[in-house]
Simulated assay, not measured.
Amino acid sequence: MSHRVFIRKPIDEDWKKLLLLHQRSKSFHSPWVSPPLTEEECKKYINRCKNKDYEGLLICHSTNQKIVGVANLSQIFYRAFQNAYLGYYVDVEFAEQGLMREGIRLALDYTFSTLNLHRVEANIQPKNTASINLVKRLGFTQEGFSRRYLKINGEWRDHERWALTVEDWVFK
């Protein structure tokens, strides 16, 4: 269990903090993700987090409560599939400190214990070595390659498909 970070759901008032994080980290995130860069987009994101098929989780620093990063579980399916897609990104200020690994670990605990999902997938661009190393350290297995999978910053990009099931997850 992490003592350096905790996770929480975003609240309406978080839009300003998220906007600053996104703007400050814009070049760091490119070309991997394109988070909301306007007030309207940040507010839409927070509203989307209220949907039943989407869980947005803020990874926050335990000491000062600053938002370290974001973990999103999208397209949450139940019944026979019990799956979600995991996306995440870090604030450039907190990059390479191991905080995201701790935060994603908490998000995975939440995914498997609270949401009772069986499987989570992370689709990552092949050259995003930091993200690939993160999922490897967390026990994900590479399952495939998807050509021109997601449109990011106006360009269709290839992705590797990584997955983790509850049977392979170690709750810590």
Rank of each mutant, 00 (worst) to 15 (best):
F94S: 10
V90R: 01
T114S: 15
L115C: 12
P36R: 02
P35S: 14
A95L: 14
T111V: 04
D91Q: 13
R79C: 13
L58Y: 02
P35Q: 14
L57A: 14
L57T: 06
K43N: 15
K52L: 14
S62M: 06
L20K: 11
L99K: 04
P31G: 04
T111M: 10
Q65N: 10
Y89N: 07
E93V: 13
K43D: 15
Q75W: 09
F112T: 01
M100C: 05
C42L: 06
S74Y: 10
K50C: 07
A95R: 14
Y85W: 09
E96I: 11
A80F: 15
R48T: 13
K66Y: 07
L18Q: 01
K26E: 08
I104E: 02
Y89H: 10
S30R: 14
A84F: 12
A80R: 14
S113Q: 14
G87S: 11
H29K: 01
H61N: 12
R101G: 03
H22I: 01
E40S: 15
Y85V: 11
G103Y: 00
F28V: 02
I59H: 00
L58A: 03
E102Q: 08
V33G: 03
F28N: 00
M100F: 03
F112Y: 07
G69S: 10
N64W: 03
K52F: 12
